[in-house]
């Protein structure tokens, strides 16, 4: 499963820069990021190429940084694929907590990162694979 880092940041100028600076210094590559904004603060979610190492570095630098497992689902970039994916999850009554996606320009593959409410309750990987989607392993993801 893919790893996502969540970092607590105050909502003021320069805070995102403070993270990206650390990532550059440690030669880490960001695959995806999104920000959950809550006014005075926000949660920055990052998918990076060396998640364990990145978490240690972030904590070392004084950030509140947590790591959790998420699903990186891929499919061809075709109309209707996202609808198929969400329908499959709805069928099993799985609640998506957070999701962010993009299309990799080289091979026109859509990649979707999914965070779930209770990931252990059902066998998500099975459900998703049964509908023709591929779940990227850590290695596959980081070799994109």
């Amino acid at each position: 499963m893919a790893k996502q880092l969540t970092i607590f940041l105050e909502n003021r100028p320069g805070r995102i820069q403070s993270i990206s600076k650390v990532l550059v210094e440690h030669q880490m590559n960001v695959w995806a990021f999104t920000i959950q904004d809550r006014g005075e603060f926000g949660l920055v979610k990052l998918v990076v190429d060396k998640p364990q190492q990145a978490q240690l570095v972030m904590i070392d630098e004084g950030f509140a940084c947590a790591m959790k497992e998420i699903l990186a689902v891929t499919a061809d970039d075709e109309p209707g694929n996202l609808a198929k994916l969400t329908a499959a999850l709805l069928e099993k009554n799985v609640n998506i907590k957070d999701a962010y996606g993009f299309v990799a320009p080289t091979d026109r593959k859509g990649i979707c990162f999914l965070e779930f409410e209770n990931p252990d309750k059902v066998n998500l990987e099975e459900i998703i694979a049964a509908h023709g989607f591929t779940i990227l392993t850590d290695e596959e993801l980081y070799e994109l």
Binding site: L5, T6, F8, R38, I59, G62, F63, A64, C65, A66
Partner: peptide
């Protein structure tokens, strides 16, 4: 926020 107790869950922060 105390780093060691941070889980990354927005709901827990609220």
């Amino acid at each position: 926020i105390y780093s060691k107790m941070f889980t990354g869950e927005l709901g827990e922060l609220e």
